[in-house]
Design a protein around this nucleic acid. Sequence first.
DNA 1: TAGGGTACTTACTCTGAAGTAAGTTTTTGA
DNA 2: TCAAAAACTTACTTCAGAGTAAGTACCCTA
Lengths: 107, 107
Amino acid sequence: MTKKWTPASAADGVEQVLKILEGKWKLVILFHLFGGQVKRFSELEKAIPAITQKMLIQQLRQLEADGIVTRTIYHQVPPKVEYSLTDWGQELCPALDALLKWAENKK
Amino acid sequence: MTKKWTPASAADGVEQVLKILEGKWKLVILFHLFGGQVKRFSELEKAIPAITQKMLIQQLRQLEADGIVTRTIYHQVPPKVEYSLTDWGQELCPALDALLKWAENKK
DNA sequence: TAGGGTACTTACTCTGAAGTAAGTTTTTGA
DNA sequence: TCAAAAACTTACTTCAGAGTAAGTACCCTA
């Protein structure tokens, strides 16, 4: 059963979601991890050349705090840290697809 | 047929959509107009008490420019301006629903 | 002719997200 | 013992988006 939404509460709910996605680089990061891909910090750096280390970490940390990405540390030298999506994070994919399809459908 | 997306192009596509939705007040406005509702400027003002006239207009103009809301002017005294969603704007509703459902599904 | 209601504009300030650039930690191997 | 690679951290600056507050155009009615 779906909740009863008021305009205000529905807008609020969507805004919570947008807040998660809103960072300048989060979507690029997400799309690099969709489909069960696992990437190291340095791989993401290479895949997104324009991003700075600071921003990459900041965005990853926020995504992690929001429960969308998982961080796995390997205690090696040199260190290795892998990032992947949580189950919940993967489920975001179809929802974003819906937005893309909507955008394509502009008359 | 669906386009072939790279991480970068997909992220870009979603970002275009987010840009449309991103204003501080756009979602509230949208949810007040979903379902074919038609509202006057002053009705929206009342429905969203915290918004200032400047922001209301600004957001409405941007939504209009993006092809999501329609503006109908009645040349009366006092003036009357009605806002409603375009067909494309209405179609946004299910896509936002998908996001809401995703958010509810957080483990 | 003065006031009132509706739909805007304009000028200013403020704040937080993003950018830049440099420094830090850890341990191995030459 | 010192450089090198990976994954961060820190300090500073910049700028666009949002807020505040006031003003404007229109024209009817009293």
